[in-house]
Computed example of a mutant assay.
Amino acid sequence: TYILQDGGLLLNNPSALAMHECKCLWPDVPLQCIVSLGTGRYESDVRNTVMHTSLKTKLAHVINSATDTEEVHVMLDGLLPPNTYFRFNPVMCENIPLDESRHEKLDQLQLEGLRYIERNEEKMKKAAKILSQEKTTLQKINDWIKLKSDMYEGLPFFSKL
């Protein structure tokens, strides 16, 4: 029996988990670049100053805290070297659910997305440049040597005499 769970409940921004998995798979390879793509966020200007203690309100706060993508972003942005981590997540002018299907709302989302791209063009170009960089000859040789040593590690005819 398998128990499956939506990763969005705890990992709406899986960037930190992806970094961990990369380190496990390739422990000696330095991190080149992480690009994190969000689905957009809505930041309401209205803050409710009344303290609600209802179970529904408490549950809503727990869910919002667990599904917040920006906390992971702030942590990674502060920990990683410059030009290593890029987060693209536009602020939306309205809280539109992910399952929205009305044409006028989808058009609004598309327009907000295009404006975001225009405002962040330089950041996107920088990420694209880093992602498309060729490895140096020395890096390629080191990668080849590491690959060969990993392939033959533990084989009896390559063990030391």
Results as ranks from 00 to 15, higher is better:
23 K>Q: 13
142 N>C: 03
47 R>V: 15
129 K>Q: 15
69 T>W: 00
6 D>W: 10
158 F>I: 00
121 E>R: 13
96 I>P: 04
155 L>S: 04
91 V>K: 14
89 N>R: 03
112 E>A: 08
82 P>W: 02
130 I>G: 01
9 L>K: 10
96 I>D: 01
86 F>M: 05
130 I>H: 01
47 R>G: 02
89 N>Y: 03
44 S>K: 10
27 P>L: 06
161 L>G: 08
100 E>M: 10
108 Q>C: 04
62 V>Q: 04
24 C>G: 05
102 R>Y: 06
146 K>G: 08
111 L>G: 02
61 H>D: 10
38 G>N: 03
133 Q>N: 08
127 A>G: 03
95 N>K: 12
11 L>N: 09
74 V>D: 15
124 M>F: 02
87 R>Q: 09
20 H>D: 10
128 A>M: 09
158 F>G: 01
33 C>I: 15
160 K>M: 07
55 L>C: 05
137 T>D: 13
44 S>T: 10
146 K>C: 09
129 K>H: 14
146 K>T: 15
44 S>Q: 09
147 L>Y: 10
111 L>K: 14
62 V>M: 08
13 N>C: 13
5 Q>P: 04
142 N>W: 00
49 T>E: 14
134 E>T: 08
20 H>Y: 14
109 L>N: 00
12 N>A: 09
82 P>A: 10
117 I>Y: 02
106 L>A: 01
42 Y>M: 06
34 I>Q: 05
36 S>E: 10
70 E>V: 08
114 L>P: 01
95 N>R: 12
75 M>G: 05
144 W>D: 00
110 Q>F: 09
5 Q>T: 15
141 I>S: 01
44 S>A: 15
21 E>H: 12
99 D>H: 12
5 Q>R: 13
147 L>E: 09
48 N>D: 15
75 M>N: 10
111 L>D: 11
114 L>E: 15
89 N>V: 05
90 P>Q: 05
117 I>N: 00
153 E>F: 07
138 L>S: 00
57 T>V: 03
10 L>H: 11
80 L>W: 09
6 D>L: 09
78 G>E: 07
145 I>R: 01
70 E>R: 12
31 L>W: 09
50 V>S: 15
53 T>V: 11
136 T>M: 03
147 L>K: 09
64 N>C: 06
51 M>D: 10
95 N>F: 08
124 M>Q: 02
113 G>F: 02
153 E>T: 04
134 E>P: 06
140 K>Q: 03
67 T>P: 04
133 Q>I: 00
150 D>Y: 00
93 C>W: 04
100 E>N: 04
79 L>K: 07
56 K>P: 00
29 V>A: 11
144 W>L: 02
25 L>V: 12
139 Q>T: 01
48 N>E: 14
149 S>I: 00
58 K>Q: 14
154 G>W: 02
11 L>Y: 15
85 Y>N: 02
144 W>F: 10
27 P>Y: 04
143 D>Y: 02
31 L>R: 07
139 Q>E: 13
68 D>R: 05
127 A>N: 02
31 L>N: 08
5 Q>G: 13
16 A>D: 11
56 K>C: 08
52 H>W: 07
100 E>R: 05
41 R>D: 13
91 V>M: 09
45 D>H: 13
23 K>N: 07
58 K>G: 15
64 N>S: 14
2 Y>Q: 07
78 G>T: 00
19 M>C: 14
